[in-house]
Structure formats: C-alpha cells, structure tokens
C-alpha cells in the first residue's frame, strides 16, 4: 500500500503537485488521466523519490520514504518504474539490461539473475531477443524489455508513465497486452496514460488530475460514463470526439 500525504512539488514557483492526498491499495490497477502538464508524471516520480516533494510525505507500507540512502533504496526496491521513453541501458544488451540491477541491488548470483530475467522476458515475448543490442529494437520491443527489466526486480508496485505514448501506433497493442497480463497477475499498478479505451478496460480506479490537483477519484471506470466534475467532462469529451 502506498500513501501520499499533503504531497506538494514546486517547479519554478509553480505548484506542480498541490497538496495531494491519496492511497493506492495492494493488487489494484490505478489509472491516472489528465491533460498534459497536469502533474501525472510528477506524481509518479514522487512515489519513488525521483522527484523529492517540498512538502508532505510518501509512505510505502507505512514506512516513510525520504532522501536517506537506506530508505530510498528500500522504497525503490519495492517500486518499479516504466518510462515513456524506455530508458534502456544503451551499453547493454536485452538480457544484461534485465540482469544489471538484480546483481547490483539485490545481490543475486549471475545464474539466478539470468533465470529471473529470462522468465520475465519470456512473459513479454522477448525471449528470442536476449542477445540483441537495445538500439536495434523497435519501440514496442524496447518497452516490453523495460517492463521485463522492472519486473525482474520483483517489485510490489509498478509505476508506468505513459508507457505507450512514444510508440508507433502499430506497436502500442503489444505493450498494452503485456500490461494487461501483469495486471491479471495481481500486481499493483499505477498507470498514467492517454490511452482512454485501455484505461477504461483495465482500471480498478481512475484518477483525473488537473493543474496539480486530484479533481476526481472514482472506483472502476465509472468516471468515463458519468464524470462528476466539469473539468473531467471537458477533458473526456476531447477524447470521445476524436475517437
């Protein structure tokens, strides 16, 4: 379980996150939607402290996260992250990408790390690419490797920051499929996305953010059928129009 209390993040005198109070329950799929610049990425990044909030606290299992190396390490072991632009290690091949942190952070033996990595690469159908350099992969393949890399650390929670936004349309499906599989296995997911149809299909809970605030926070995907808030309506209508 992840708890954010009064989390406030300021960039250039702007409150990018403005007093966020929220809890994410174990085993749930949490989808965050909202316009560009509303603070979705920043919210995810405060959870693993890639962005340190100016005010407020983050708890993982009732344990405070802060900038001390020990607690940071603990938090980041528990929370995996998948980025919009993959950020695979460009000097390592597919398999090595999934092994590096296992060996360095979890002190796993090489053989074990390899076994775990292969298991997760297989789950995203990337097992036949293990020796490939990552810059020779397509976007969808890169993102599936990034997912396998994060899962190889056996996190309890996975943060996904617009995992399909940098992809060619024809490879979006394969990544969404991989995420769907993870969700079915009961992993706690916090997903920021502009893929409304997918959000609707997968969400146990949907959060609409705007200007650094949680505007609407609803169970399931009901937000898409009966948005309560005016701004949510306006935001969603843009998607239904274009869809």
């Amino acid at each position: 379980m992840i708890t954010l209390e009064h989390v406030t993040k300021v960039y250039d005198n702007v409150r990018v996150l403005d007093d966020i109070n929220i809890q994410f329950k174990k085993g749930t799929v949490n989808v965050i939607i909202g316009p560009s610049g509303s603070g979705k990425s920043t919210l995810l990044r405060t959870i693993n402290y890639l962005a340190e909030p100016e005010k407020g606290q983050v708890f993982i299992h009732d344990e405070l996260v802060d900038a001390s190396p020990k607690r940071l390490r603990k938090a980041r072991k528990a929370v995996g992250m998948v980025f919009q632009d993959f950020h695979l290690f460009s000097h390592k091949n597919v398999l090595e990408n999934c092994m590096l942190a296992q060996i360095n952070v979890l002190n796993r033996a090489k053989d074990e790390a390899k076994k775990v990595a292969l298991k997760h690469l297989k789950a995203v159908h990337m097992e036949s690419f293990v020796t490939r350099r990552v810059d020779t992969l397509s976007g969808g393949q890169k993102q599936r490797v990034a997912i396998a890399r994060a899962l190889s650390m056996n996190p309890e929670v996975l943060l996904l920051d617009e995992p399909t936004s940098a992809l060619d349309p024809e490879t979006v499906g394969e990544v969404l499929e991989a995420i769907r599989t993870i969700a079915k296995k009961g992993m706690t997911l916090i997903l920021a996305t502009h893929e409304m149809a997918f959000a609707r299909a997968i969400a146990d809970r949907t959060i609409f953010m705007d200007a650094g605030k949680v505007v609407e926070d609803r169970n399931g995907a009901t937000i898409f059928e009966t948005p309560h808030h005016e701004r949510t309506c306006a935001f969603l209508s843009r998607f239904t129009k274009t869809a």
């Binding site: 890639l50 995996g80 980025f83 950020h87 290690f89 460009s90 952070v105 994060a150």
Partner: peptide
Amino acid sequence: HKGQKEAALALGMSPYATYRLVLFPQALK
C-alpha cells in the same frame, strides 16, 4: 540522456553504482 541515470536510480541503484555501471561506461565508450 538523463533518463539513463533515472532508470538506474529507479531500479534501486546507488548514485555510486549508477555512475560506475551505467553512466561512466557509456561516457567512456
């Protein structure tokens, strides 16, 4: 790319390990 550093940190690597295992090898290359 600053994403390389963030990816390593997000995986739980220390700043030292991040430089040693990810950033220096790439810069040296």
